[in-house]
Amino acid sequence: MTKLLALLAIFAALFCAPLVIGSEFWLNTVLLALYAALLGQAWNILGGYGGQFSFGHALFFGVGAYSVAVLQVELGLSAWLGLVVGGALAAVVAVIVGFLTARYGLRGSYFALVTLAFAEVFRILSNSVSWTGAGEGILIPLDQRLAALQFPDTASAYWALWAITLACFLAVWRLERSRFGARLMAVRDNEDAAAAIGVDAMQVKLGAMALSGLFMGLAGVFYAQKFLYLDPAIAFGPEKSVEALLVPIVGGIGTLFGPLLGAFALHGVAEIARETMGDAPGLNMIVYGTILVCMVLFLPRGLAGLGKHVRRAFRA
């Protein structure tokens, strides 16, 4: 219960960000951090709670983003419909990937590589078919009305993102105290032992894929509607996948607050790096890579794990 209260308090504070932050630049920074927290939590459902490390979460992001874009641009349908279709389609694609990998018993690094390969295949496909705009990308026409699911200013975009992210975090809060979550973590920790006491590993893995894919897809929809432009590298490129997995690894994998911690820590560091070293291209990736190596070496349980260490040290 205290966990839920803490979660709601944090999100209440986050809700107020546009009201108290005067600078457009800083609001945008907070928005990007919150957006990273969403990506990270979506990945965390599968990677942290399910123990399946995906290197290709951009796949579901891209499916969501392209769904909403193509539906509007090619078919002239509403962006709101695109929101539903984008989330649903991303979940379906995730279930298909989950089924194929589970069917062939791909775990660990094989699972990681296959998800990466799937994302790459979709990147190449979206680069070559015409209705995605191919290599030139796809431009969503500007129409800043609520009916078109577009945002007249940073604050309204921020609140839309806030709502999706809150839904994602509440889903994970619920997951932690549900039968589905208990089974998912059991399969993560020991698949044979879980099966012996009646857990259908395939079923829970597909459930986690669907939920993870859904929120990743919704993140993609948000991205498309905020920036109104997509190309294959943005949607399906490995950078998105790396960001999604880096955030919870830094913050604390398999924990509710880990992705939030990780997202704000990473964006804090990225801002400082930009301030001190300038805006050199690729700098972000170098900083991220260094952080990743340090985390794996020194803090394998992330910042949330550090908190536990400190508390234990105080008690001792």
Binding site: D189, N190, I197, V199
Partner: peptide, 15 residues
């Protein structure tokens, strides 16, 4: 084959 990292209570609750 315990679910290591989970408590005794959580382990048994899966069953």
């Amino acid at each position: 084959q315990p679910f290591a990292g989970q408590t005794v209570r959580e382990n048994i609750a899966v069953g």
